[in-house]
């Protein structure tokens, strides 16, 4: 075991998988000599050389399109998009190509590719270095969407994503990249895709979240416990395909659901979670399902801390749900 930050765990996962499997290659802007702008690929070029750690020109369509072609040929490319906010020049390659190649070819071609990208606010990044637009991808058949909230999960989920036979969009919560360390096993292990984790047990209300917001929920749950309210926190870890069993089991016990994320609220993934639970468990609910999300405005530089849901806001809704 070694104590690692989430960022180091990502680096560790890449190194572990590159050592184990020579089909794994990295491609992205500044991933080589620079080690990535967040240092997620630090040192990898020294071990694996520039052929496997490919510094790409500034072109996301090319990065994702080229990685798609490599994957079709049997490689295991891991593409890095420097910020999720910059994925859109490559959006067509994801939406029209990578996500549909298995289906449109009747399963004769596949794209075992990972697209890693940091997302979310909390680093004073203003409009274009802060967004959480996972809903564009959870709306897309043919991709899996993963987002860890802890170093242990980051490493295990990333290794599992690289081994996964489909396209995985791997969203790294940049706000918690370096915020804490956790014991992470050395070498190879996986955390399965499609399995949520109960981050905190509780019986009065279920908080469902993923990525950085999980920590906001845990903080709110701790504050709620001082008021005698027992909140359960579910860390989805994989958004698509979602672990519906864990989600429903929790809601069936607590009878209350609050979904927390940083994305714009309207049309966000929080809505999908709400609808799934409403369809399958509305009779157990003793309060409305609440969504606590970012505002339906672009992200703000100056008002970042107000834009992003904080523990105080979550606590307010916990009380509201319990007292409904």
């Amino acid at each position: 075991m070694v104590a690692e930050t989430l960022l180091q765990a990502v680096n560790d996962a890449l190194r572990t998988e590159m050592e184990a499997d020579d089909r794994v290659v990295l491609i992205g802007e500044d991933v080589g000599k620079d080690g990535g702008v967040f240092r997620a690929t630090e040192g990898l070029i020294n071990t694996f050389g520039p052929e496997r750690v490919m510094d790409a020109p500034l072109n996301e369509a090319g990065i994702i399109g080229v990685a798609t072609g490599m994957a079709m040929y049997g490689m295991r490319p891991v593409a890095e998009i420097q910020f999720m906010d910059f994925i859109y020049p490559g959006f067509d390659q994801i939406v029209s190509e990578a996500s549909k190649i298995r289906y449109r070819s009747g399963g004769t071609y596949t794209v075992p590719m990972v697209i890693r990208t940091p997302y979310g606010g909390g680093i004073k990044g203003g409009i274009y270095h802060s967004q959480s637009t996972e809903a564009y991808f959870t709306h897309l058949p043919g991709v899996k969407v993963v987002s860890p909230s802890t170093p242990y999960d980051a490493k295990g989920l990333l290794i599992a994503s690289i081994r996964d036979p489909d396209v995985v969009i791997f969203l790294e919560p940049k706000r918690v990249y370096r915020s804490f360390r956790e014991e992470v096993p050395e070498g190879d292990y996986t955390v399965p895709l499609g399995k949520a984790k109960t981050a905190r047990k509780g019986k009065d209300v279920t908080l469902v979240s993923y990525g950085a917001s999980v920590h906001t929920c845990i903080q709110a749950a701790e504050e709620a416990s001082r008021e005698g309210i027992s909140a359960e926190v579910i860390d989805l870890r994989t958004l698509l395909p979602i672990d519906i069993e864990t989600l429903l089991a929790s809601v069936n016990r607590t009878g209350r659901l609050i979904v927390v994320n940083e994305a714009n609220k309207f049309g966000s993934f929080a809505g999908e979670i709400s609808a799934l639970v409403a369809e399958r468990a509305i009779d157990v609910l003793s309060a409305p399902i609440y969504r606590i999300s970012g505002f339906d405005t672009p992200f703000s530089y100056t008002w970042e801390s107000v834009f992003m849901p904080d523990a105080a806001k979550v606590l307010e809704y916990i009380r509201k749900a319990v007292n409904y």
Binding site: D85, F86, P89, K124, G126, I127, Y128, Y301
Partner: peptide, 20 residues
């Protein structure tokens, strides 16, 4: 709303830049 150095000036015909 924007990070530092995203200067615009409507008055001076200098358009609003983005980060992408």
């Amino acid at each position: 709303r924007q990070m530092p150095n995203h200067f615009n000036s409507r008055d001076k015909n200098i358009a609003t830049p983005s980060s992408p």
